[in-house]
Simulated assay, not measured.
Amino acid sequence: MANIKSQEKRIKTNEKSRLANKSLRSEVKTAIKKAMIAKSENAANKDELIKDAVSLIDKGYSKGIFKTNKAAREKSRLMSV
């Protein structure tokens, strides 16, 4: 365990951000799965689910959770026929 005050604070803030990132990553994965299922079943609300998933992917990219190519790849897979 750290014995420097600033390092103790960094440990706490790193843990908070790790949990927040994990939560958003999980939310994105769920949204992508729902959109892909709706797309394969040709559901009526597939466009809305795809739009929500793309929005979450962009949010994750802007927060630095996803790298550029991963965000682009996931959006491309959602948009493809």
Rank of each mutant, 00 (worst) to 15 (best):
A2I: 01
A2R: 01
A2M: 03
N3V: 08
K5M: 03
S6R: 02
Q7V: 11
K9G: 02
R10K: 07
I11G: 01
N14E: 11
N14A: 15
E15S: 14
S17W: 11
S17C: 01
S17A: 08
S17N: 14
L19Y: 04
L19K: 12
N21K: 08
K22R: 08
K22I: 10
K22H: 06
S23M: 11
L24Q: 06
S26Q: 10
S26R: 05
V28T: 08
K29C: 08
T30A: 14
A31F: 09
I32R: 01
A38C: 06
A38V: 01
S40A: 11
E41M: 06
A43C: 04
A43F: 00
N45I: 08
N45F: 04
K46G: 00
K46E: 12
D47S: 13
D47G: 10
D47R: 06
E48G: 05
E48S: 13
L49F: 04
D52Y: 01
A53N: 03
V54T: 12
V54C: 11
S55L: 14
S55Y: 11
L56P: 02
I57M: 04
I57L: 12
I57R: 00
D58Q: 09
D58G: 15
D58E: 13
K59L: 15
G60T: 07
Y61C: 00
Y61L: 15
S62W: 00
G64T: 02
G64A: 03
T68V: 08
N69S: 11
N69D: 14
N69M: 09
A71Q: 03
A71H: 04
A72C: 00
A72V: 07
E74W: 10
E74N: 03
K75E: 09
S76C: 02
L78Q: 08
M79Y: 11
S80G: 12
S80K: 14
V81K: 14
